[in-house]
């Protein structure tokens, strides 16, 4: 692992200024992706900027309409938070199988989405919740809908000097749904396909990971399901439409064909769950 400079600013402003000032500088948060990438020499930064000294990023703030999870809240802290468990069960389920317990004690949801892996575990629940990514920007804070946050493999909608400060999720009246992860091994594995299928305030929302360059919503399938009763036929047709909305590849974890089958299956089992519970 090459050496680099390391900064621990106390404020977002300082952190952002460092990012702008220093060449080849990156944010490090939980570090579970960054440290492995450093070890494997997939990144060779001149400087890393640790944002964990910024106190406000460690909070989970519950408001009447929403919950905001700070960027430095670890996955385990989030998954054990009462309000999060109460309102965002699909997210908690997804996080429960993200890496190992040891990883979840370091890793954060903000880091997970900023890493922008096509199979990010927390991405599909956030997509069906229509979460908002909160961003500190030198030009003033802004919010990015999660559906517009992912731009490609390891590419996100942040400008230079911008820092994700947290994720805000609306509290819905009723959410029914499931997160599903297909993997070679149940524990501590990467998804070959992951999905969230939910009825959010009566509207069906479906998201997939690991079947395209970015985690994505299946809008056509959602559109098809609008105002329809979930009969076996409707479910079957929806699952076929979902198949056309993704573009998986063959890789060492699974074939394109298997991934397409699991996309279909996710829709079938997800919708059946919504219907039967």
């Amino acid at each position: 692992m090459k050496n680099f400079d390391y900064y621990k600013p106390d404020t977002l402003k300082e952190a952002s200024e460092l990012l702008l000032k220093l060449d080849k500088s990156y944010i490090i948060n939980g570090g579970t992706d960054v440290v492995v990438r450093l070890r494997n020499e997939l990144m060779e930064p001149d400087a890393l900027i640790n944002i964990k000294e910024i106190k406000s990023l460690h909070e989970i703030i519950e408001e009447e309409e929403s919950i905001t999870v700070g960027a430095c809240v670890t996955m385990n802290e989030m998954a054990h938070h009462k309000a999060v468990i109460h309102d965002f069960g699909i997210l908690v389920d997804a996080v429960h199988y993200a890496g190992s317990g040891q990883v979840r004690n370091l890793a954060t949801m903000a880091g997970n989405i900023c890493n922008a892996s096509p199979l990010a575990d927390s991405a599909t629940p956030l997509l069906v919740y229509d979460a908002k990514v909160l961003v500190y920007s030198p030009n003033g804070d802004r919010e990015i809908p999660i559906t517009e946050f992912f731009k490609g493999v390891r590419k996100i909608a942040l400008e230079k000097g911008e820092i994700v400060t947290g994720v805000r999720i609306n509290k819905y009246k009723s959410v029914k749904g499931v997160f599903r992860k297909f993997s070679r091994r149940k524990e501590v594995d990467l998804s070959t396909v992951c999905s969230s299928v939910a009825s959010v305030d009566g509207e069906i929302k479906i998201a997939f990971g690991s079947v395209a360059p970015i985690p994505l919503r299946a809008y056509k399938t959602e559109e098809f399901l609008k105002d329809k009763e979930l009969t076996d036929e409707v479910i079957k047709e929806a699952s076929k439409i979902a198949r056309t909305e993704v573009s998986p590849i063959d890789d060492i974890r699974a074939s394109k064909e298997y991934r397409l089958d699991m996309v279909e299956l996710s829709v079938v089992r997800g919708l059946e769950h919504i219907r039967d519970n």
Partner: peptide, 26 residues
């Protein structure tokens, strides 16, 4: 699940990320 995958002689899964051995859950 175990297989050391070799593509034209090149190992393509020689790490725990892609070569899985059983955990307690299995």
């Amino acid at each position: 699940f175990e297989e050391l995958m070799l593509k034209d002689g090149k190992p393509v899964n020689n790490s725990f990320v892609d070569y899985k051995i059983p955990t307690a859950d299995d």
